[in-house]
């Protein structure tokens, strides 16, 4: 059974703005997939649909999204069981979406909210083993020492790793990361991507990550799905991504991308090397 199955998904904002056009996508368990594309191409919108946070168009155009075979939404309606399906999906957001006034540990513990009784959740009664679990998750992403601090005191990179720890505690088999490194510096970006790659490699959790930075996508993710104007225009191995595909995605007048193109143009060998490097990083992580 596929980890994520998206069938004929369409989304129109404000009646005219077609954000997603007939998306079909199958992601197998244990894959690490990058979603790339220019700003406004629909990466975030697709991720939020998979997480069941926004409904697609009403009726047949809405298609359906299945996660581990369970519908999280179909024909533009969020499934009544969406809450249960969401327990199996960890979402990591660009702006971390932590509750800043709560401690880092409590933020990570909120990952358990879908699983504990309403009574315990209401009074914040987390048992010792759950707190241990949260601490271990924080340790895994390298920030166990921040557990007692308020989330607002953490740096961007640390907050994002706390958000990943929350997804880990949740025990989600699928992790959706929506531009997790878009607001981070390069060193923090690398740590966050390493953490995601490590989780993918060691726990065989499915990871879908949308990225602005094509180099990170090619380095960390064996498979790339590229979106342009809401449609999938490339879906295949990152090793096979050519400069032409990138030019098609981002437009060739974009100056910043010239460096990228050179990098990609330096030959398919470089790309395969990068993939191998990605594996190395995973193994080392």
């Amino acid at each position: 059974m596929a980890a994520i199955q998206v069938n004929r998904l369409n989304k129109t904002f404000g009646g005219t703005n077609r954000a997603l056009k007939d998306i079909n996508l199958t992601i197998q368990p244990g894959e690490m997939v990058a979603l790339i594309g220019a700003s406004g191409s629909g990466k975030s919108t697709l991720i939020r649909h998979i997480a069941g946070l926004i409904p697609a168009d009403r009726g047949d155009a809405g298609g359906e999204v299945l996660v581990h075979g369970d519908a999280i939404q179909a024909q533009g309606r969020i499934s009544p069981d969406a809450r249960k399906v969401r327990v199996g999906i960890g979402v990591v957001f660009q702006q971390f979406n932590l509750v800043e006034r709560l401690s880092v540990l409590t933020n990570v513990l909120t990952g358990l909210l879908g699983q504990i009784s309403g009574f315990r959740a209401f009074f914040g009664l987390f048992i010792k083993s759950e707190k241990q679990l949260a601490l271990k998750a924080l340790d895994r992403v390298g920030i166990a020492h921040t557990a007692g601090q308020r989330a607002s005191t953490l740096s961007g990179g640390q907050q994002q790793r706390a958000a990943i720890a929350r997804a880990l505690v949740q025990g989600a088999a699928v992790i959706l990361a929506d531009e997790p490194i878009a607001s981070l510096d390069p060193a923090s970006s690398k740590r966050v991507m390493d953490a995601l790659a490590q989780i993918n490699a060691e726990d065989a959790r499915t990871v879908v990550v949308s990225l602005h930075q094509v180099d990170y996508a090619l380095k960390y993710c064996p498979r790339v799905v590229a979106l342009r104007a809401g449609a999938v225009v490339y879906d295949g191995a990152s090793a096979d991504v050519t400069p032409d595909i990138l030019r098609d995605l981002y437009g060739d007048e974009c100056e910043e991308l010239m460096g990228l193109e050179d990098q990609a143009a330096s030959g398919a060998g470089a790309t395969t090397h990068v993939t191998a490097d990605g594996d190395l990083v995973v193994a080392a992580g």
Binding site: A51, R86, F93, V99, L102, G114, G118, G124
Partner: peptide, 16 residues
């Protein structure tokens, strides 16, 4: 939204 994505109920979203 971060809390909602964990599969929390509406009440838990409000509390946390």
């Amino acid at each position: 939204e971060g809390i909602r994505a964990t599969g929390a109920t509406r009440l838990e979203e409000v509390i946390y």
